[in-house]
Amino acid sequence: MTAAVLSGEGRSPVKVVASAAPVVVLLWVLPYVLAPYKTLLLTYGLVMAIAALGFNLLLGYTGLLSFGHSAFFGVGAYAVAFMVKYLDLTSMELFIVGATVASAFVTALFGLVCVRYTRIFFSILTLALSQVLWSLAFKFFWVTGGTDGLRVPTPRLLGRAVAASEDKTTFLVHAYYSYVLVVFLACVALMWVIVNSPFGKALQAIRDNETRAEFVGVQIWRYRWIAFMVSGVFTGLAGALWVPLNGLTTPDILYWPFSGEIVFMAVLGGFRTFSGPIVGAIVFNYLKTYAVGFTVYWQLLLGVILVTLVLALPTGITGTAGQLLARLRRAA
């Protein structure tokens, strides 16, 4: 059933937009209803959803499990920080362009090495390469700020800076949230087109049966490389959006546990559905925040949740919800 959602010659875009419209309206009004702190958490969630969406192009659609997406997220964030530090830029649009170019360059390079392999070899290679970037950020402290990281002030959005009378939180909760939401919606729309394009079909074919895909004329290596780049650019873009929100970037976001969090998000939401990683990212963000506040053993708590999830709900939140919905429809 869930596989069929990934398949088919695709639902009509009009129907998709119509079914997504209530969610978009809800996301638009939430900052006016929620407390500022919760809106900030939602902003983080939307940013991470872009990263998870990119990640899932590899896992859910191409069958490649990357344990190195922290690298691309970090490249996006550090690209922004370098633009502030060395070029004195403050425009969010330029940050996005810079982060996109930087992450495209790094993913293209990493991809040349990684996509020649699959399964554990691919996962380990992505992990190893991300750790190379982590160690560079860690050791070249005169460039990267080392463990202190690099500060990124609140950017100008479409030329508009935080007004003197405006408090930074209000700016982030309203103007920046709206900005992130627009970029998020654009990313969702773009990814939806990609996974429902002929190229998206070819990726799913590669995931299902590499040999056969090759024997219908799909050039496996090239398609994987492009998917890897698209995936990395989405994640880099998320890094660019994340860093002004956080105000600081440190080597932590290049470290492998951060890649693990992105994997967690996709598994939590359900990597076999398009919306799964989005839901997973938003839920994970709240889950982690409240777990940290609830106990000092929050990693243990998240670990237990992950194990339970894999054993009891292997299709994640959206997969399970879909199955329950189908069961209810049959019963009705």
């Binding site: 429902n196 394009s197 002929p198 079909k201």
Partner: peptide, 14 residues
């Protein structure tokens, strides 16, 4: 693949 369209990234298959 035969028609060289499998690489189309930004247009819907439908």
């Amino acid at each position: 693949a035969r028609e060289g369209k499998a690489r189309k990234l930004f247009s819907l298959a439908r």
